[in-house]
Amino acid sequence: MTEATTGISAFDRDTAITPRGEGVYDADLSADWTIGHAVNGGYLLALLGRALGDALPHPDPFTITAHYLTASLPGPAAVRTSAVRTGRTLSTGTASLVQTGEDGREVERIRVLASYGDLAALPGDVRTSAEPPPIPPYERCLGARDGMDPAAIPPITHQVDLRLDPATVGWAVGAPSGRGEMRGWFGLADGRDHDPLSLLLAVDALPPTAFELGLSGWVPTVELTVHVRHRPAPGPVRVSITTRNLSGGFLEEDAEVWDSRDRLVAQSRQLARAALA
């Protein structure tokens, strides 16, 4: 991968925000981050996270929860932020992304509640029983576009460097494992190194675990909570996602993100809808 400098990569360009004043920002949702007709939820969360990082006095998302109300579409959008509380080590705020609907009325797409701090100021003591996921080396994993019909490749696939663990891609050849697991190496296609904002994308950028459960089709996110634990070291990250329970047409996805220094840098849980028919 070629290296891109932070600030000029496609990710930075497409999550750019323009302050309008009083905590409001203008944005342009890029069609390059879509799956089907909708914009990817992790990309949207990163954009909202950038707005909150500008609006709040602390730089880094520690915990951020998004409720996805309606599908976001490529094009103009506005982000409205509000500070709820500002403390010495943490500040908390809300954000809402809105677009203009076909009838000219404003439609709220996402609502977020988040707490921000300074990851660089955290103590270095780590006590954990968590271990990195058993993913084969990068060169032995499968590219997201390998063997796919070019016409069926979603635009977001061209923006990321995704290499999937062969043990979790049975769905691609009509033989899903039934285990509800998805694992892979994840980076940005232009080589930009990860930061806390790109981790918000990473937790929602792999194919849905529903595919390995034998389901197909769109799996829209209802709610997504991300905990960012460290600033990631340079290089691609490893992402592991599991689903243990699908019930009533809803499933959970628990994700872990590990950096090149074998540190658990982000965790998430989301609730999503799954088409059972």
Rank of each mutant, 00 (worst) to 15 (best):
F62E: 03
H194P: 02
T157E: 07
L201Q: 01
D28W: 07
T221C: 03
Y43N: 07
T81D: 01
A55F: 04
V79P: 08
A66D: 13
E102V: 09
P132H: 13
I241T: 14
Y25T: 04
A46N: 08
T94Y: 01
H37V: 11
G7R: 10
P220T: 10
A46L: 09
P76S: 15
P196L: 10
T221W: 05
V160Y: 03
R85Q: 08
H67S: 12
T92A: 11
L73P: 05
L213P: 00
T5W: 05
G170N: 13
L276T: 15
V203D: 02
R179L: 10
R140L: 09
T65G: 14
P132W: 14
P208H: 11
A10H: 09
S96I: 12
V237H: 00
G184E: 10
V112A: 08
G87V: 01
D204F: 02
T209M: 04
V24K: 06
S177H: 13
G53D: 01
I64G: 07
D146Q: 15
P166R: 12
T157P: 00
T15C: 06
G214I: 14
L56N: 03
F11I: 00
R127M: 14
S268V: 06
A121F: 07
V160G: 01
S177L: 15
V79Y: 06
A152R: 11
D103S: 15
T18K: 02
R105L: 08
V257D: 11
P196C: 12
H194F: 01
I110M: 03
S198K: 06
T100R: 13
F211W: 12
R192C: 10
G53Q: 06
S82W: 05
G124I: 11
D32W: 00
A55M: 02
T225N: 13
L122P: 11
L200C: 04
G41I: 13
D259N: 02
A51Q: 00
R50Y: 09
V39C: 13
G143R: 07
D146M: 12
V169W: 02
H67G: 07
R179M: 11
A77L: 07
L142N: 02
S30D: 12
L97V: 15
L276R: 09
L97H: 08
G21A: 07
D146Y: 04
G180V: 14
G248F: 07
P134I: 07
S247L: 14
V203K: 08
A233I: 02
S268N: 07
R20S: 10
P207Q: 04
E253T: 13
W171L: 12
L246W: 03
Y68S: 06
I35L: 12
A46W: 08
D259Q: 01
Q270Y: 01
L215D: 02
A51L: 05
I156H: 01
R229Y: 00
P57N: 02
A233T: 00
H230D: 09
C141K: 03
E252Y: 03
H37F: 09
T63A: 15
N245C: 10
R231P: 06
I156Q: 03
G235M: 10
R263T: 11
S268R: 00
W258Y: 13
T65W: 04
I135N: 07
